[in-house]
Amino acid sequence: MNAQLFSVLDELLRSPEAVAERIRRREDLRPLVVAALLALGLGAGTFGAVLATARGGVQLGYSALKLPLAVLVTLCLCVPAFAAIARGLGRNIDLGGMVGLSLSAAARASLVLLAFAPAVWFVLDRGIGYHYSVLLSAVCYGFAGISALRVMAAGLGRDGRGLGILLCCAAVLLPTGAQSAWMLRPFIGRPAQASVPFLRHKEGSFADAVYQSAFSSVGRYRSSARVFEEETGE
């Protein structure tokens, strides 16, 4: 079993096309699912723990737990939509196949995050600061996402229709993944914070934060009270 797991992990990294073909043929998907969950826990968990090294302490454990959880929650919410979109746009892939494909893609992304972990740890250890840490983690997520796209593209087809399905899936995945991660934050942890919460208060949403950051980036800072006044008219 161990040899089979390592062989599947190797295949996930080296040949996304072979993984997609295995899912298309509906071979026994159990080793693939087990290997993918293992890769997800190990890769995303390690990267989460590394992100928390700047804060240290209990945040290490929290982030190691929450990052794989955010990925899994996002997959659970998005996979039914992916399957429906693929079916709607003429790809004959059922829910089981889409679960295998999405899980494999997430596993590949997690393994890429694992590859980034030592370099990120080194940079964080040099004390680059909270905001640069956030930026660095976003870049790593971007690279991991691109590597996951290869698995999805191999499974959905590399023609115009496959690209259309990928774009529609991305339109569902991006807001859902961002909001799931927002609900489970903090992952890095502000150094100035006295205590480390497992989850922060709701404090708006990812979309609200992006909206406010768009104003902040052009030098227009809006306080929470002002935003409340604008939205409610009070």
Binding site: L77, P80, T176, G204, E231
Partner: peptide, 30 residues
Amino acid sequence: FTAGLVLAGLAPAVAMLVVTIESAAAAAWM
């Protein structure tokens, strides 16, 4: 049927988004 199928597929993600997003405008947009 296809539009209904996609809407039903989107339902879990949209439920999470509209319940957890505070701003009414952002929820409407999603």
